[in-house]
């Protein structure tokens, strides 16, 4: 089986975000970069599937500036076989990212399954999985926390609203976007870390895959930090008085109850 995983490199969740002077983006100096957490479930799922199907290969793709090769290497160190990096600008939107990933995947001889995370925790748009699937004319099942593999089909459990779970069947090939709960990602082992250094990471430019920067559809501008919050009101007194006063405020002043 030829299994592919699309991953994104994102700032660590602890990062304090600062803006660049003209507010056209964030100041990336000093940022610690990690693999987006949901993508770790995607990588793990690919590795488990490979273990059940000997002879399979797991290829990890990431589109972004050259720093994202480090994220690919991290995935290789957990056991993925090879990587593909597609060079796109830091400011690429979801469309351009998806076109780049789909363009690289189109060059592969056979794609059986593609995994992604359900969203990247920096942009949080949850667009890329569906966009990649559409550009490859493939079905996509998102927010998946359990998969049963059949013969040329998959049965996925996906989370929908109200705590309900939907059971959806899809033909293969298919793109599956992982939700937390799908599995427990493994850590890189020392032998794998050493092996990862020798694994191939192919580099592609947009021109190699028939995509251009004009495929970008939106641009972010006028970045702002959230306005500093006014110090809130502390409610004092004994617990009964505090409870009475809070409920009074929420009902009579804030009018939210």
């Amino acid at each position: 089986m030829n299994i592919y995983v699309c991953i994104k490199q994102v700032p660590d969740t602890e990062t304090k975000i600062k803006l660049n002077p003209n507010q056209s983006g964030i100041d990336t100096t000093g940022i610690k970069w990690i693999v987006s957490p949901y993508d770790e479930f995607a990588v793990e799922e690919a590795l488990r599937l490979k273990e059940k199907n000997p002879g399979s290969t797991v290829t990890v793709l990431s589109a972004g500036p050259s720093r994202v090769i480090e994220a690919i290497r991290t995935a290789l160190a957990t056991g993925a076989d090879q990587g593909i990096h597609i060079e796109i600008p830091e400011t690429a939107d979801n469309h351009l990212t998806a076109k780049a990933l789909a363009g690289a995947l189109k060059k592969e001889t056979q794609v059986d399954l593609i995994f992604t995370g359900k969203e990247a925790i920096d942009d949080g748009a949850s667009q890329v999985s569906q966009l990649v699937a559409e550009y490859l004319h493939l079905p996509c099942v998102s927010v998946v926390n359990s998969i049963q593999y059949g013969n040329q089909t998959v049965q996925c459990k996906r989370e929908i609203e109200g705590g309900s779970i939907e059971i959806l069947e899809s033909s293969m090939p298919v793109l599956i976007a992982a939700q937390k709960g799908l599995n427990e990602p493994r850590y890189a082992s020392l032998p794998n870390i050493l092996k990862a250094k020798k694994k191939e990471v192919k580099s592609l430019k947009l021109g190699d895959i028939g995509v251009s920067e004009a495929d970008q559809k939106i641009r972010y501008k006028n970045f702002q930090l959230p306005p500093p919050k006014q110090a809130g009101k502390k409610i004092s007194g004994d617990p009964t008085a505090q409870a009475k006063e809070l409920v009074r405020i929420l009902h009579a002043e804030a009018k939210v109850v």
Binding site: P11, T13, T15, K16, I17, L19, I26, I121, D122, D123, G124, Y220, K221, N222, F223, Q224, L225, P226
Partner: peptide, 9 residues
Amino acid sequence: VYAGKATVE
């Protein structure tokens, strides 16, 4: 964006 640590137009 960045989980609400900034907003963009």
